[in-house]
Each structure stands twice: as C-alpha cells, then as structure tokens.
Simulated scan of single mutants.
Amino acid sequence: MPRRVLVFGPAYLDRVLRVDRPLLPPGLGGPLDLSVGVLPGEGGTNEGLIVLEDPEGGTIEIEAPGGWPERLSPILRLDRPLAPGSGPWRTRARGVSWLDDLGGMGAGYASALGGELVSALGGEDDPISAEIAGMLRAQGIAHHPTRVPGVGADWTLLVSSGPHGDKLPIGFRGCHSRLDAYPGPTGGRRDLLVVASLTNPLASSALRAVDAHVRVFAPTLRNMTDAAFPVSSFAHRFDVLCCNRREWESLADRDEVAGRLPLVSVTDGPDGALIRFRDPEGRTREHREPAFPRAHSPRDTNRAGECFAATLLRTLLDSGWSPGPADPGLVRLAARRASAAAALVLDLERFGFPTPGEIDRAVGRGEVGRGAP
C-alpha cells in the first residue's frame, strides 16, 4: 500500500542566478548555505549590477548575465550577516546564467517523498502564483493550495556558485507570511507528515492539527533563532529534526531538543552529515556519514538538503522503523543511501530528484559521476 505522505511547506518560484566564483572572499568561512530576507525599501539602483549588502557592510556585486529580466537591478539590503563578525568586506562575481524554476522546501519534500503538498499561493490574478501552480502540475505534485487574495506569491532569488558550493536564497515573501494557522486537510491518519521552512507558530499549528505516525520538522535558520516561539516549546510534537550544521549550531538549547527526539539529522555540505539517534539499548549514538565520493565537482548544490533527508526517511520507514530506537546498522544504511542521493542531486541543474534505482546503483558503484547513471 502506498505510503500516505503530507508536506506542509512553501512552493516558490526560484529565479536561479549562477555565478562564476565563490560568494565570500577567501578566509571568511565559505561556502555559504544560508537563507536570508530583504529589508523593506531599496537602497538605489545600479545598472547592470545586482548588489547584495548585509548589515555588517559585507557586499557582493554581481554582474547581471545576458537576458537578465531586470534592466535596473536594485541594491538589496539583506536582513542578516553573510559572514558574522567579519565587518565590512566587498567582493565581485560575474553572473553566467539564470533561469526560473520550481523551488521551496515544501515542493522539494513533496516531490522527493511522493507526497501531497499544502502551501499558499497569492490571489487568482497573480501571475507568479499561476506559474508556480503550473510547475507543480508539471512535476506531478498533488497540491492543496490556500489562496491569499491581494498579495503575490513568494519567490526567491537563489544565487548559486555551482561547483564552488555556495547557495544563497534571498526570499521575497508574500502569501505564506499572511498565514496564522495550518490551512490544509486534517482528516485521516498519515504515515508521514513533514513540516518545512515555515514560521514556528505555523509549524506547531500543523504538527498539532495533523495525525501522523511519523512527524518531521525541517527548519531554516530563522526557526532556530526564534526566541519568541522557540523550537523547544513544540519539540514534543515531532519525532525527527532535519537541518544543516549552521542551523543546528544556532539552536541555543539544541541538547535539550535533541534529548526529546528519536532522531536528528544534521547535514554539513562537503563534510557529510551527522545522525544522532537512540539504539535499542537506549543509548544515545552518533553516526557520521562522509560526503559520497564524486568523480567531478557539483553542478548545483540546490535541493541537496531535502534530498538527503527524504532518502534517509524513506530508507528508515521502508525497513520498518517507527519513532523510537533505531538499529545502528539500519542508520548506517539509510545514511549511506541518503549521502548517495544528495551526491546525485548535485548534478541536476533543474528541479528534480534521483529515483530509488539510481540511488542503489550509485551505492553499488561507490561513486557518482563516472559510468552509467
């Protein structure tokens, strides 16, 4: 019987801008894997340049690629530092290409897990909402949209340095910020619920409203640093936490949160991932999974996090895991398959995820990027 999966999280329009070099100057701790927002208002315009300024004076100037849809690109004031504590700095990159694609963690998890998606769209007359809806249909993602009249859809300027490993999503938020409670279906028990990339009050609302055998929370940095509605206040509502290292280290009470959960997955880009779990004897264990071997540099790091987490979850659940203790051998197997899946998705320059067969073949070969797919 097919697994009943429900995902509550955003589907965006991603305007992907690929650049020719790392986004941070040498010595500032790159590559970036950080979601940021834009402060209200524009700081002026620069013809032919996309200028990103953070609160500490760090500045990235990007030469717009050919065909870039904005003739005058605004100076975007980012809402958080890109390299905290580094003070003012300046670097420049050249845009080599751009494209519009489906994005958002909600869409990613729904596609990778074969689940239904609950997300918001703008009003019926909003062209970006219509484009997102068409992209979801084209991907075969069953969608439960909540229309928010009078506002536009969310979209993201996603700056990627491809083989250099940077991923900087810059969010322009509209419809999802207007939601104050979970708006989707609640009838029937789900096998798996994933709540991703939404505010902590919204995440808590969904986790409370939907009955599910396994409940997963996939946060962003803002979730982890929200002092007004901390993750620890609703950690009893989910079973698995999936995040990256920077997000995990930003959670002030992470040891308390981890102590409540059967499983925590923390990805760390080229340094692999850490899985924290309890074994059948009740001991807390940690498994460190290295990044899967590759024959060439990544083409695009977008979607690697949700691909890793989705494959980890599918492997555990396919082997009969329920929230609670996990066999160390099963965790190793799941982490290995998840690492291979993330390596495969690094070669995809458009929205998409590897199949289980492709993942198993990569695990068998022990490497991605050489030989048959």
Rank of each mutant, 00 (worst) to 15 (best):
Ile132Asn: 07
Asn200Phe: 01
Val331Arg: 01
Leu157Asn: 06
Leu330Ile: 05
Val264Glu: 01
Ala153Glu: 03
Leu333Lys: 15
Ala64Ser: 09
Arg90Tyr: 10
Met105Ile: 12
Leu316Glu: 00
Cys242Ser: 13
Thr156Lys: 05
Ser232Pro: 09
Pro127Lys: 09
Leu72Ile: 10
Ala130Glu: 09
Glu349Ala: 13
Ala304Ser: 14
Pro10Met: 07
Cys307Ala: 13
Val240Cys: 01
Phe234Val: 04
Asn200Leu: 00
Arg350Ile: 12
Glu281Asn: 11
Cys243Ala: 11
Gly187Leu: 15
Tyr182Asp: 01
Pro127Gln: 05
Val118Met: 05
Ile170Met: 10
Ala334Glu: 02
Ala340Arg: 01
Gly103Ala: 04
Pro55Asn: 03
Phe292Gln: 00
Leu6Ser: 07
Ala227His: 15
His213Gln: 14
Gln139Glu: 12
Leu52Phe: 04
Gly44Phe: 12
Trp155Cys: 12
Leu221His: 08
Leu221Phe: 05
Thr225Met: 07
Glu116Phe: 06
Pro88Glu: 01
Pro2Gly: 03
Gly122His: 01
Pro10Trp: 01
Pro2Tyr: 00
Gly272Arg: 00
Ser297Pro: 15
Gly171Phe: 15
Val216Gln: 03
Gly352Trp: 10
Pro31Gln: 15
Gly152Leu: 06
Pro328Asn: 00
Asp33Met: 14
Ser35Ala: 10
Asp239Ile: 06
Glu306Tyr: 13
Gly282Leu: 02
Pro169Ala: 13
Arg190Met: 05
Ala93Leu: 13
Gly165Leu: 08
Asp100Ser: 12
Ala309Lys: 12
Leu312Ser: 07
Gly106Met: 02
Cys175Thr: 07
Glu289Ile: 02
Val51Tyr: 06
Leu251Val: 06
Gly67Gln: 07
Asp166Gln: 14
Gly150Ser: 11
Glu70Pro: 04
Gly123Phe: 00
Arg246Ile: 11
Gly259Ser: 07
Ala153Asp: 02
Gly66Lys: 13
Gly282Trp: 04
Thr225Asp: 03
Pro323Asp: 06
Arg4Met: 00
Gly152Gln: 13
Ala133Asn: 09
Asp101Gln: 11
Asp255Pro: 10
Leu136Tyr: 04
Pro325Trp: 02
Val151Gln: 04
Leu136Glu: 03
Leu346Ala: 03
Ala64Gly: 14
Ser233Gly: 11
Leu241Val: 09
Pro65Trp: 02
Arg190His: 02
Phe217Gln: 02
Gly366Gln: 00
Val214Asp: 03
Ala138Val: 08
Arg350His: 10
Asp279Asn: 09
Ala340His: 01
Ala291Ser: 13
Gly104Ala: 05
Ser319Arg: 15
Phe229Trp: 11
Asp279Ser: 06
Gly187Met: 12
Gly272Pro: 01
